[in-house]
Structures are given as structure tokens and as C-alpha cells.
């Protein structure tokens, strides 16, 4: 996508808006539209995308809040998802990437979170949402959908220094060799409840954060403040997409 196309997209074009869109506007972000979603393409800087990729490799912060995600709860949930050909992890607090590229996270024996992939390859979230609306709205099968798009903001902290950042905000040991690919922690981040998921972008460490959407700006500011000593900065989705697609 070229700059001309992205420049004219305003985050308010969509009725569904990230709680952080004003922060992005402050940084004069370039937005882009993917399907119904408006996301930050990149922030203005000297070398544009290449610079952001370098930042993301070291320490970057990206807002994914307008990307699709969903969740399900209830005794029947794991079995139902398995019957929909999903690979459901055995252990709670584990994430498993699906062959369709979506990420399925088991939060407890009865609770699952599903995140779409950064390249928009998978339709899993939309499909599951439709299925749930069609089949489970009478709530008599112990499967309950959760409005994860709206209850939680979705951020990504990337780069080899990401764990240094977390050590200033979180009392759980998230260092690379202790908190490996697929690990999940439901914990307190800057005194806010958060789900932290390790899901690397190929060789670049990446941590997804899902946290109460009403506290999104507070958390965003805390993360940026804690990043400053490591020269971390916000990055657009395009940098992450590049890292995710380059094998």
C-alpha cells in the first residue's frame, strides 16, 4: 500500500474506533483500511517503514485494537472448538497457532480466546462469531461468546528488548527463556489486569497484551514511558506485518 492511499484514511471513517486513535493522531500516524478495520500503517519518520521495522526488532509498541478477536466460555467450549477443527491446547494459559494462522488461547479449562492473524489471512474469528450467533444464542449448550473486541484493547510489544520493558511494569518473569513461545500470563501490568501472550513474529519476540479497553490510554502511556529509556517507540501494523511474513 502506498503513502498516497494511506494518508487520506481517517480513523473516524469507521464507526468502530480504537480507544487509542487520538494518540495516533497526535503522532500524525498514517492509517490504512483493511476490510472494515482501520489500523495504523506507520508513523511519520525519516526512513519510514524500514526504520519502523528496525524499531520493532528492538522495542516497538503497536495498537491492534481494531483487529478481530473473540472469546468463548463455558464447559462446552473446548469440545465445541475441537469439533470446529481447532487445535485446543491441553494446558490452561497456553496459546496455539492454528493452521489458518489465527491464535487460540486457552485461559482456563472453560475459557478460550481467539485472535486473528496480523496478515488477515484467517477468517476464523468471523466464522466463529457467526456460528455462535446462529447456534448458541439460546444459551443452553454451555457455550457462551464473549465480546473480546470491545472488552479488551489489544496491543503488541515487540523486539529483543521487550522483556526489559516488562520488568518495569510486571512482577511476572517474562524473560525469553522463561516465558517461551505460546506462554500466557494473566497478571497485573502497571496495576492493570492484563493477559500477556508470547507470540513471536518469526525471529522477533512479540508479546500481545489484552487489557481492559477503558484503560487503554493509561496503559499505552505507561508502556511508552517505560520504553523511553530503551528508545522504544510506537510502530504501525505494516512493520509487524513485514516481520510476520518474512521467513
Amino acid at each position: 500500500m502506498t503513502k498516497q492511499e494511506t494518508n487520506i484514511i481517517a480513523p473516524t471513517l469507521a464507526t468502530r474506533r480504537s480507544p487509542l486513535y487520538r494518540r495516533h493522531l497526535q503522532y500524525q500516524a498514517h492509517f490504512k483500511q483493511v476490510g472494515d478495520n482501520i489500523v495504523v500503517d506507520s508513523y511519520p519518520n525519516e526512513g519510514a517503514i524500514n526504520d519502523e521495522i528496525e524499531i520493532a526488532k528492538s522495542m516497538g509498541l503497536c495498537d491492534l485494537s481494531t483487529l478481530d478477536r473473540t472469546g468463548f466460555k463455558g464447559v462446552g467450549t473446548p469440545q465445541w472448538l475441537a469439533s470446529q477443527s481447532f487445535k485446543v491446547p491441553v494446558l490452561a494459559n497456553t496459546a496455539e497457532e492454528q493452521s489458518s494462522q489465527s491464535l487460540l488461547i486457552k485461559l482456563s479449562a472453560q475459557e478460550i480466546l481467539v485472535l486473528s492473524d496480523l496478515l488477515f489471512l484467517s477468517e476464523d474469528v468471523k466464522r466463529l462469531y457467526q456460528k455462535a450467533v446462529e447456534n448458541h444464542q439460546s444459551y443452553d449448550q454451555q457455550i457462551y461468546n464473549l465480546p473480546r473486541n470491545d472488552s479488551h484493547c489489544w496491543l503488541a510489544v515487540t523486539g529483543i528488548n521487550a522483556t526489559e520493558l516488562f520488568s518495569k511494569l510486571c512482577a511476572v518473569d517474562l524473560r525469553s527463556h522463561k516465558f517461551v513461545q505460546g506462554a500466557v500470563a494473566q497478571t497485573s501490568l502497571a496495576k492493570t489486569n492484563a493477559i500477556i501472550i508470547r507470540h513471536d513474529l518469526n525471529k522477533t519476540p512479540c508479546f500481545y497484551i489484552l487489557s481492559d479497553i477503558s484503560g487503554a490510554e493509561f496503559l499505552w502511556d505507561c508502556l511508552l514511558d517505560a520504553m523511553s529509556e530503551f528508545h522504544g517507540a510506537p510502530v504501525g501494523l505494516s512493520a509487524l506485518q513485514t516481520l510476520a511474513s518474512n521467513q
Binding site: 490452561a92 494459559n93 482456563s108 512482577a171 511476572v172 500470563a185 494473566q186 497478571t187 497485573s188
Partner: peptide, 11 residues
């Protein structure tokens, strides 16, 4: 039992 060892401030 779900999340393992955590600081008591998380409870």
C-alpha cells in the same frame, strides 16, 4: 491453582 505462583498482591 490456575495461574501458578504469583505475588500476593495479585490476589
Amino acid at each position: 491453582p490456575l495461574n501458578g505462583l504469583r505475588n500476593i498482591s495479585e490476589f
